[in-house]
Design a protein around this nucleic acid. Structure first.
Lengths: 149, 149
DNA sequence: AGCTGATCATTAGCTTGCTATCGACTTGGA
DNA sequence: TCCAAGTCGATAGCAAGCTAATGATCAGCT
Protein backbone atom coordinates (compact mmCIF):
# COMPACT_ATOMS: atom_id res chain seq x y z
CA UNK A 1 0.00 0.00 0.00
CA UNK A 2 2.82 2.39 0.76
CA UNK A 3 4.51 1.18 -2.39
CA UNK A 4 3.27 4.12 -4.40
CA UNK A 5 5.08 6.53 -2.07
CA UNK A 6 8.38 4.79 -2.64
CA UNK A 7 7.84 4.64 -6.40
CA UNK A 8 6.95 8.30 -6.60
CA UNK A 9 9.97 9.32 -4.56
CA UNK A 10 12.30 7.16 -6.57
CA UNK A 11 10.97 8.27 -9.94
CA UNK A 12 11.08 11.90 -9.01
CA UNK A 13 14.63 11.61 -7.70
CA UNK A 14 15.82 9.93 -10.88
CA UNK A 15 14.12 12.53 -13.04
CA UNK A 16 15.45 15.39 -10.97
CA UNK A 17 18.99 14.07 -11.17
CA UNK A 18 18.71 13.64 -14.93
CA UNK A 19 17.23 17.11 -15.28
CA UNK A 20 20.00 18.62 -13.19
CA UNK A 21 22.62 16.99 -15.33
CA UNK A 22 20.97 18.10 -18.55
CA UNK A 23 20.43 21.67 -17.36
CA UNK A 24 23.96 21.90 -15.99
CA UNK A 25 25.26 21.47 -19.50
CA UNK A 26 23.65 24.84 -20.20
CA UNK A 27 24.90 26.55 -17.05
CA UNK A 28 21.62 26.26 -15.18
CA UNK A 29 20.83 24.14 -12.14
CA UNK A 30 17.59 22.31 -11.76
CA UNK A 31 15.97 24.72 -9.31
CA UNK A 32 16.88 27.75 -11.41
CA UNK A 33 15.27 26.22 -14.43
CA UNK A 34 11.83 26.74 -12.93
CA UNK A 35 12.51 30.40 -12.23
CA UNK A 36 13.64 30.85 -15.81
CA UNK A 37 10.54 29.26 -17.23
CA UNK A 38 8.34 31.76 -15.46
CA UNK A 39 10.50 34.79 -16.23
CA UNK A 40 10.73 33.87 -19.91
CA UNK A 41 7.00 34.35 -19.97
CA UNK A 42 6.76 37.32 -17.62
CA UNK A 43 9.92 39.26 -16.95
CA UNK A 44 10.21 41.61 -13.99
CA UNK A 45 8.25 39.70 -11.40
CA UNK A 46 8.97 40.15 -7.71
CA UNK A 47 10.32 37.30 -5.57
CA UNK A 48 6.96 37.02 -3.86
CA UNK A 49 5.07 36.75 -7.13
CA UNK A 50 7.52 34.17 -8.41
CA UNK A 51 7.25 32.16 -5.25
CA UNK A 52 3.46 32.08 -5.56
CA UNK A 53 3.63 30.87 -9.15
CA UNK A 54 6.22 28.23 -8.37
CA UNK A 55 4.45 27.09 -5.21
CA UNK A 56 7.57 27.68 -3.22
CA UNK A 57 8.40 29.97 -0.31
CA UNK A 58 9.78 33.45 -0.82
CA UNK A 59 13.16 32.73 0.82
CA UNK A 60 13.67 29.89 -1.63
CA UNK A 61 13.21 32.28 -4.55
CA UNK A 62 15.39 34.93 -2.91
CA UNK A 63 18.26 32.49 -2.46
CA UNK A 64 17.90 31.04 -5.92
CA UNK A 65 17.80 34.56 -7.37
CA UNK A 66 21.02 35.42 -5.53
CA UNK A 67 22.78 32.45 -7.07
CA UNK A 68 21.36 33.25 -10.49
CA UNK A 69 22.47 36.85 -10.15
CA UNK A 70 25.97 35.65 -9.33
CA UNK A 71 25.79 33.40 -12.38
CA UNK A 72 24.83 36.37 -14.54
CA UNK A 73 21.37 35.06 -15.36
CA UNK A 74 19.33 37.89 -13.86
CA UNK A 75 19.56 41.30 -12.23
CA UNK A 76 17.63 42.81 -9.31
CA UNK A 77 16.03 46.21 -9.76
CA UNK A 78 14.28 48.14 -7.06
CA UNK A 79 10.72 49.08 -8.01
CA UNK A 80 10.67 52.87 -8.54
CA UNK A 81 7.12 53.20 -7.23
CA UNK A 82 7.08 50.85 -4.25
CA UNK A 83 10.47 50.74 -2.56
CA UNK A 84 9.77 47.47 -0.81
CA UNK A 85 9.58 45.54 -4.05
CA UNK A 86 12.43 44.02 -6.01
CA UNK A 87 11.93 43.13 -9.65
CA UNK A 88 13.85 40.28 -11.25
CA UNK A 89 14.93 40.82 -14.85
CA UNK A 90 16.57 38.22 -17.06
CA UNK A 91 19.85 38.95 -18.79
CA UNK A 92 20.52 38.22 -22.48
CA UNK A 93 22.48 35.20 -21.28
CA UNK A 94 19.34 33.80 -19.67
CA UNK A 95 17.31 34.47 -22.81
CA UNK A 96 19.88 32.76 -24.96
CA UNK A 97 19.50 29.64 -22.86
CA UNK A 98 15.76 29.45 -23.41
CA UNK A 99 15.73 27.35 -26.55
CA UNK A 100 18.23 24.65 -25.54
CA UNK A 101 16.87 24.33 -22.02
CA UNK A 102 13.26 23.98 -23.10
CA UNK A 103 14.41 21.42 -25.62
CA UNK A 104 16.40 19.50 -23.02
CA UNK A 105 13.38 19.38 -20.77
CA UNK A 106 11.19 18.14 -23.60
CA UNK A 107 13.71 15.45 -24.46
CA UNK A 108 13.89 14.33 -20.86
CA UNK A 109 10.14 13.97 -20.56
CA UNK A 110 10.05 12.09 -23.83
CA UNK A 111 12.86 9.80 -22.81
CA UNK A 112 11.42 9.03 -19.39
CA UNK A 113 8.02 8.07 -20.76
CA UNK A 114 9.29 6.41 -23.91
CA UNK A 115 8.17 2.95 -22.82
CA UNK A 116 4.64 4.10 -21.99
CA UNK A 117 1.74 4.05 -24.39
CA UNK A 118 -0.26 7.22 -24.95
CA UNK A 119 -3.02 5.77 -22.85
CA UNK A 120 -0.64 5.00 -20.02
CA UNK A 121 0.64 8.56 -20.17
CA UNK A 122 -2.88 9.90 -19.91
CA UNK A 123 -3.65 7.61 -17.00
CA UNK A 124 -0.44 8.67 -15.26
CA UNK A 125 -1.18 12.36 -15.67
CA UNK A 126 -4.73 12.04 -14.44
CA UNK A 127 -3.73 9.93 -11.45
CA UNK A 128 -1.08 12.47 -10.45
CA UNK A 129 -3.59 15.26 -10.82
CA UNK A 130 -5.98 13.45 -8.53
CA UNK A 131 -3.30 12.99 -5.91
CA UNK A 132 -2.32 16.64 -6.13
CA UNK A 133 -5.91 17.75 -5.82
CA UNK A 134 -6.43 15.43 -2.89
CA UNK A 135 -3.33 16.72 -1.10
CA UNK A 136 -4.05 20.40 -1.69
CA UNK A 137 -7.79 20.38 -1.05
CA UNK A 138 -8.19 21.41 2.59
CA UNK A 139 -5.07 19.32 3.32
CA UNK A 140 -6.40 17.37 6.30
CA UNK A 141 -3.32 15.63 7.62
CA UNK A 142 -4.34 12.04 8.26
CA UNK A 143 -3.78 11.75 11.98
CA UNK A 144 -4.11 8.42 13.75
CA UNK A 145 -7.69 7.58 14.50
CA UNK A 146 -9.36 9.75 11.92
CA UNK A 147 -9.82 8.78 8.35
CA UNK A 148 -10.03 11.31 5.60
CA UNK A 149 -12.84 9.45 3.92
CA UNK B 1 4.65 16.93 -22.99
CA UNK B 2 6.72 18.16 -20.08
CA UNK B 3 3.56 18.29 -18.03
CA UNK B 4 4.26 14.95 -16.42
CA UNK B 5 7.51 16.27 -14.96
CA UNK B 6 5.73 19.13 -13.26
CA UNK B 7 3.00 16.86 -11.95
CA UNK B 8 5.46 14.36 -10.56
CA UNK B 9 7.48 17.05 -8.85
CA UNK B 10 4.43 18.69 -7.38
CA UNK B 11 2.87 15.45 -6.17
CA UNK B 12 6.09 14.26 -4.61
CA UNK B 13 6.63 17.58 -2.86
CA UNK B 14 3.14 17.56 -1.39
CA UNK B 15 3.52 13.98 -0.23
CA UNK B 16 6.93 14.62 1.25
CA UNK B 17 5.69 17.64 3.16
CA UNK B 18 2.72 15.68 4.49
CA UNK B 19 4.98 12.78 5.43
CA UNK B 20 7.39 15.10 7.21
CA UNK B 21 4.59 16.62 9.22
CA UNK B 22 3.18 13.22 10.14
CA UNK B 23 6.56 11.75 11.06
CA UNK B 24 7.53 14.83 13.05
CA UNK B 25 4.67 14.11 15.41
CA UNK B 26 6.61 11.00 16.37
CA UNK B 27 9.98 12.70 16.69
CA UNK B 28 11.27 11.53 13.31
CA UNK B 29 11.97 13.58 10.22
CA UNK B 30 11.11 12.40 6.75
CA UNK B 31 14.62 11.37 5.73
CA UNK B 32 15.21 9.44 8.94
CA UNK B 33 12.07 7.47 8.42
CA UNK B 34 13.66 5.60 5.55
CA UNK B 35 16.70 4.69 7.61
CA UNK B 36 14.45 3.39 10.33
CA UNK B 37 12.44 1.22 7.97
CA UNK B 38 15.57 -0.61 6.88
CA UNK B 39 17.06 -0.94 10.36
CA UNK B 40 13.79 -2.27 11.78
CA UNK B 41 14.26 -5.14 9.41
CA UNK B 42 18.03 -5.52 9.69
CA UNK B 43 19.73 -3.87 12.64
CA UNK B 44 23.46 -3.25 12.67
CA UNK B 45 24.04 -2.34 9.04
CA UNK B 46 26.94 -0.11 8.03
CA UNK B 47 26.39 3.34 6.49
CA UNK B 48 27.52 2.01 3.15
CA UNK B 49 25.12 -0.92 3.22
CA UNK B 50 22.29 1.37 4.23
CA UNK B 51 23.12 3.80 1.47
CA UNK B 52 23.01 1.00 -1.09
CA UNK B 53 19.61 -0.18 0.09
CA UNK B 54 18.19 3.33 0.19
CA UNK B 55 19.71 4.29 -3.17
CA UNK B 56 21.38 7.24 -1.59
CA UNK B 57 25.03 8.23 -1.18
CA UNK B 58 27.03 7.28 1.88
CA UNK B 59 27.53 10.87 3.12
CA UNK B 60 23.76 11.31 3.17
CA UNK B 61 23.42 8.31 5.47
CA UNK B 62 26.32 9.44 7.63
CA UNK B 63 24.80 12.87 8.16
CA UNK B 64 21.35 11.48 8.79
CA UNK B 65 22.81 8.96 11.24
CA UNK B 66 24.56 11.77 13.11
CA UNK B 67 21.28 13.63 13.52
CA UNK B 68 19.51 10.45 14.56
CA UNK B 69 22.24 9.69 17.06
CA UNK B 70 21.80 13.15 18.55
CA UNK B 71 18.06 12.50 18.69
CA UNK B 72 18.68 9.26 20.57
CA UNK B 73 17.35 7.03 17.81
CA UNK B 74 20.50 5.02 17.15
CA UNK B 75 24.06 4.40 18.31
CA UNK B 76 27.26 3.87 16.34
CA UNK B 77 29.44 0.86 17.19
CA UNK B 78 32.78 0.11 15.67
CA UNK B 79 32.90 -3.32 14.10
CA UNK B 80 35.20 -5.47 16.29
CA UNK B 81 36.53 -7.44 13.33
CA UNK B 82 36.96 -4.79 10.67
CA UNK B 83 37.93 -1.48 12.22
CA UNK B 84 36.91 0.52 9.19
CA UNK B 85 33.27 -0.39 9.55
CA UNK B 86 30.70 1.34 11.71
CA UNK B 87 27.50 -0.48 12.62
CA UNK B 88 24.29 1.41 13.25
CA UNK B 89 22.08 0.01 16.00
CA UNK B 90 18.62 1.24 16.86
CA UNK B 91 17.75 2.29 20.39
CA UNK B 92 14.59 1.16 22.22
CA UNK B 93 13.22 4.61 21.47
CA UNK B 94 13.51 3.94 17.74
CA UNK B 95 11.86 0.54 18.12
CA UNK B 96 9.00 2.04 20.10
CA UNK B 97 8.30 4.37 17.19
CA UNK B 98 7.99 1.56 14.67
CA UNK B 99 4.27 0.90 15.02
CA UNK B 100 2.96 4.48 14.92
CA UNK B 101 5.29 5.52 12.13
CA UNK B 102 4.47 2.59 9.89
CA UNK B 103 0.82 3.30 10.55
CA UNK B 104 1.21 6.99 9.73
CA UNK B 105 2.87 6.11 6.47
CA UNK B 106 0.10 3.68 5.59
CA UNK B 107 -2.52 6.31 6.37
CA UNK B 108 -0.76 8.86 4.22
CA UNK B 109 -0.62 6.55 1.22
CA UNK B 110 -4.27 5.68 1.70
CA UNK B 111 -5.27 9.30 2.03
CA UNK B 112 -3.32 10.44 -1.00
CA UNK B 113 -4.81 7.81 -3.29
CA UNK B 114 -8.27 7.86 -1.76
CA UNK B 115 -9.87 9.32 -4.87
CA UNK B 116 -8.31 6.72 -7.17
CA UNK B 117 -9.93 3.45 -8.15
CA UNK B 118 -8.01 0.23 -7.64
CA UNK B 119 -7.42 0.09 -11.35
CA UNK B 120 -6.04 3.62 -11.39
CA UNK B 121 -3.71 2.71 -8.54
CA UNK B 122 -2.42 -0.28 -10.47
CA UNK B 123 -1.93 1.82 -13.59
CA UNK B 124 -0.10 4.46 -11.57
CA UNK B 125 2.23 1.95 -9.97
CA UNK B 126 3.05 0.25 -13.23
CA UNK B 127 3.64 3.53 -15.03
CA UNK B 128 6.01 4.69 -12.29
CA UNK B 129 7.84 1.39 -12.44
CA UNK B 130 8.29 1.77 -16.16
CA UNK B 131 9.71 5.25 -15.73
CA UNK B 132 12.07 4.06 -13.01
CA UNK B 133 13.23 1.18 -15.14
CA UNK B 134 13.73 3.47 -18.08
CA UNK B 135 15.75 5.95 -16.06
CA UNK B 136 17.94 3.36 -14.36
CA UNK B 137 18.56 1.09 -17.33
CA UNK B 138 21.89 2.21 -18.75
CA UNK B 139 20.80 5.79 -17.99
CA UNK B 140 21.61 7.34 -21.35
CA UNK B 141 21.19 11.07 -20.73
CA UNK B 142 19.17 12.38 -23.64
CA UNK B 143 21.57 14.83 -25.16
CA UNK B 144 20.47 17.09 -27.99
CA UNK B 145 20.52 15.33 -31.31
CA UNK B 146 20.43 11.76 -30.10
CA UNK B 147 17.31 9.92 -29.18
CA UNK B 148 17.35 7.16 -26.62
CA UNK B 149 15.17 4.95 -28.74
C1' DA C 1 57.69 -7.43 8.45
C1' DG C 2 56.60 -3.54 5.75
C1' DC C 3 54.80 -0.93 2.20
C1' DT C 4 51.14 -0.01 -1.32
C1' DG C 5 46.73 0.07 -2.78
C1' DA C 6 41.95 -0.60 -1.86
C1' DT C 7 37.96 0.17 1.10
C1' DC C 8 35.55 2.25 4.58
C1' DA C 9 33.51 6.45 7.18
C1' DT C 10 33.85 11.20 7.77
C1' DT C 11 34.26 16.08 6.59
C1' DA C 12 33.79 20.14 3.67
C1' DG C 13 31.13 22.62 0.72
C1' DC C 14 27.39 23.02 -2.65
C1' DT C 15 21.92 23.29 -4.05
C1' DT C 16 17.32 23.44 -2.84
C1' DG C 17 13.72 23.23 0.10
C1' DC C 18 11.70 24.87 4.76
C1' DT C 19 10.47 28.16 9.15
C1' DA C 20 11.34 32.06 11.95
C1' DT C 21 13.14 36.50 12.41
C1' DC C 22 14.78 41.06 11.01
C1' DG C 23 14.78 45.51 8.63
C1' DA C 24 13.09 48.56 5.34
C1' DC C 25 9.38 50.74 3.29
C1' DT C 26 4.27 51.99 2.69
C1' DT C 27 -0.04 53.20 4.13
C1' DG C 28 -3.96 54.47 6.92
C1' DG C 29 -5.71 56.67 10.91
C1' DA C 30 -5.36 60.01 14.56
C1' DT D 1 1.92 65.38 10.01
C1' DC D 2 3.30 61.46 12.25
C1' DC D 3 2.97 57.01 14.26
C1' DA D 4 1.36 52.14 14.03
C1' DA D 5 0.46 48.40 11.59
C1' DG D 6 1.08 45.90 7.58
C1' DT D 7 3.83 44.16 3.66
C1' DC D 8 7.75 43.28 1.41
C1' DG D 9 12.73 41.16 0.67
C1' DA D 10 16.74 39.45 3.10
C1' DT D 11 19.02 36.68 6.57
C1' DA D 12 19.82 32.87 9.83
C1' DG D 13 19.62 28.29 10.63
C1' DC D 14 17.95 23.48 9.71
C1' DA D 15 17.09 18.98 6.76
C1' DA D 16 18.37 16.22 3.11
C1' DG D 17 20.40 15.36 -1.06
C1' DC D 18 24.93 15.56 -3.91
C1' DT D 19 30.34 15.46 -5.18
C1' DA D 20 35.09 15.74 -3.88
C1' DA D 21 38.62 15.36 -0.69
C1' DT D 22 40.55 13.34 3.99
C1' DG D 23 41.76 9.96 7.12
C1' DA D 24 41.78 5.52 9.10
C1' DT D 25 42.16 0.66 8.55
C1' DC D 26 42.81 -3.66 6.13
C1' DA D 27 44.90 -6.88 2.83
C1' DG D 28 48.04 -8.51 -0.40
C1' DC D 29 52.59 -8.76 -2.22
C1' DT D 30 57.42 -8.61 -1.85
Amino acid sequence: MTEVLRLLTRAQKLLRAAADEAMSRHGVRVGQNLVLEVLWETDGLTPGELAARLQVTTPTVVNTATRMEAAGLLVRRRDPVDGRLVRLHLTPKARAAQQPIAEARRLLAEHATATLTDEERRHLNSALKKIIERMTASTPPPGPGEDGQ
